[in-house]
Design a binder for these strands. Structure first.
Length: 546
RNA sequence: GCGCCCGUAGCUCAGCGGAUCAGAGUAUUGGCCUCCGAAGCCAAGGGUCGUGGGUUCGAAUCCCGCCGGGCGCGCCA
């Protein structure tokens, strides 16, 4: 069965070519009007081309509507209507709308998926927290976002790799080791011998205690470093596991050094002729690529700036065959975008200019007891992912963190989330799902049989609206994937659940008449399927009972 | 000072390749369980879309200025 939208686009195109032969290439946009009086689909085509056609929009709309093509699609759509300044509104035939139920039930978990991007390799890099402390709320937002974006891309047919980059080679790790060593020696923050900018969190004390208990030598800094990093990675793995996020690859920054990739990147940069020596350091002319100042590659002390392994790392992404890479990062790192891209361009390795893509999210502000909780690793006082999960549950945290645009500030009111956990939007959606499951149990028929049930009895406005909502799911998912915007799915699910709750309260589904009953159950089962599919994209469960 | 992002209902936020875009949730108020799950539904009040210009037949949406907020501006990562 064909998608009604593409039928309409085709027909509109044909009508346009007939009426305005010299219109040229025009993108034919159809939108779903919010106001049901404006039909199921609407086009502003006449307004777009009126000027070019030298007619006023309403006249042009008249002409387009009078075209003969509409007779050929009369099985799908009613005769088009003109409204307002020249909109053309379409109303689908009732049985055209009803088809969606069979399609949803037939495709099941695959409904909403597409093959457009068949097999193309994409990487989503996210979280990438330094192993210097537990994951905080900001990482939680990133984990929820990155995982959902990855799932969205998978839904469009991409072969997605979820990657976590460990900065395990830098000064921060050294600092971590020194902090643990200091604690092991009984030195407290602020006392003589405490490292500058040392990590003060309670977890450092625990690691020091465990290290000592294991009989590790207190002067062996390298051994302490390994122990601490391993311990914190275990902790982070626990956090991620509790959050239901899995990575395909953990990429170690240290491996870039041991495998000579950093060295190779520097050589390639020098070979590009875009470097120069100044003040005892080696610089790269990143200003050639839009940076506001040139960047140091090799410091005067001989060490590399972090920018070098960053470039080397992205080269490996390209070499590993990822034509498309999405990095999910906090806005506090946005200045690295220009720099990394500049470095990749300078290499002249044929990497596209906009490589990689970035999704930046603003940091999460946590409010508790009416006051902001400062997220400071060094001070050791901050809300961890696991705190949040304990307070409001995994599903709620994930849904909540993913239900806002990434680039807007996010106020997570802990007290609100705790005290009103029953009002959390995620329960509203899950409740609709559980409610339908409950009905299906009560009906006790075979759900599989519903996909062949006659649907003609479904003619109420609420039922038709629900079907239209179901039909909008695939395009919603496709758009969300294209824009890296999981929040669009969250809003969609809220809307669908709302539509269903309204229907449920207005009409009885398990009625006496078997034909009507089964048709309504088929509709409900289709709603259930779409709710489940959408929640799955967000990494949220779809419980059968609550 | 410069760069990027953001200012929409009391609060938290959608909408921003212009029109059919003034929306949702929450909070407040008033209704709905002898009947499929009331974690639900129905209804009401509530906004010059930060502000001033510009483009357009038409701007929350595009352009410019200003105000307010966030982030960044290291031979730190």
């Amino acid at each position: 069965m064909r998608d009604p939208k593409s039928i309409l686009v085709e027909a509109l195109g044909a009508a346009l070519r007939a009426e305005v032969p010299d219109a040229g290439e025009v993108a034919i946009l159809l939108e779903r009007p919010k106001n049901p009086e404006h039909g199921d689909w609407s086009s502003n085509l006449a307004l777009q081309v009126a000027k070019k056609a030298g007619k006023n929009p309403r006249e042009l709309a008249q002409a387009l509507c009078a075209s003969a093509v509409w007779a050929t699609v009369a099985g799908t759509v009613e005769a088009p209507q003109i409204a307002g300044p020249g909109f053309i509104n379409f109303r689908l035939k009732q049985d055209t709308k009803q088809d969606i139920i069979r399609r949803v039930l037939g495709e099941g978990a695959a409904f909403g998926r597409a093959r457009a991007a068949a097999g193309s390799k994409v990487m989503v890099e996210f979280v990438s927290a330094n192993p210097t402390g537990p994951l905080h709320v900001g990482h939680g937002r990133q984990a929820a976002l990155g995982d959902a974006i990855a799932a969205l891309l998978e839904s469009q047919g991409h072969a997605v790799t979820r990657e976590f980059y460990y900065n395990d080679a830098g000064a921060q790790i050294q600092n971590l080791a020194l902090s643990v060593q200091a604690r092991a020696r009984g030195i407290e923050p602020g006392q003589p011998g405490w490292p500058q900018d040392g990590y003060q969190g309670e977890y450092i004390v625990e690691i020091a205690r465990d290290y000592a208990a294991g009989g590790g030598g207190i002067d062996d800094l390298e051994s302490i470093r390994r122990f601490a990093v391993a311990a914190l990675r275990r902790e982070q793995d626990e956090d991620l596991k509790a959050f239901g996020v899995k990575f395909d690859v953990y990429y170690l920054e240290s491996s870039l050094y041991t495998e000579g990739k950093v060295e190779a990147a520097v050589k390639a940069l020098v070979a590009s002729g875009r470097t120069y020596e100044k003040d005892g350091a080696l610089w790269l002319r990143t200003t050639d690529y839009g940076d506001d100042k040139d960047r140091v590659v090799r410091k005067s002390d001989g060490g590399y700036t972090y920018f070098v392994p960053d470039v080397a790392y992205h080269v490996t992404k390209w070499q590993r065959g990822f034509a498309r890479v999405i990095n999910v990062q906090g806005t506090d790192h946005h200045s690295t975008i220009t720099r990394v891209r500049a470095g990749l361009q300078a290499l002249g390795a044929g990497i596209p200019e906009g490589y990689p893509d970035y999704v930046l999210h603003s940091l999460v502000k946590v409010v508790r007891g009416g006051e902001e909780v400062k997220i400071s690793k060094r001070a050791g006082s901050y809300v961890t992912v696991r705190d949040l999960i304990e307070w409001v549950g995994r599903d709620a945290v994930r849904f909540f963190l993913v239900s806002r645009r990434p680039d807007t500030d996010f106020v997570f009111d802990v007290d609100l989330a705790r005290s009103q956990s029953e009002d959390n939007p995620v329960y509203y959606v899950q409740y609709a799902h559980a409610r339908i499951c409950s009905m299906l149990r009560q009906w006790s028929g075979d759900p599989a049989s519903l996909s062949n049930v006659p649907l003609a009895p479904l003619s109420l406005a609420r039922e038709l609206a629900l079907m239209q909502q179901l039909a909008a799911f695939p395009e919603t998912v496709a758009a969300a994937a294209g824009e890296f915007a999981p929040h669009a799915v969250a809003f969609y699910l809220r809307g669908l659940a709302g539509e269903f709750h309204g229907y449920y309260n207005a009409e009885r589904i398990l009625v006496e008449d078997p034909g009507l009953r089964e048709a309504r159950l088929a509709l409900a089962a289709a709603v259930r399927q779409v709710l489940a599919n959408g929640l799955a994209l967000l990494g949220v469960g779809a419980p059968e009972k609550m």
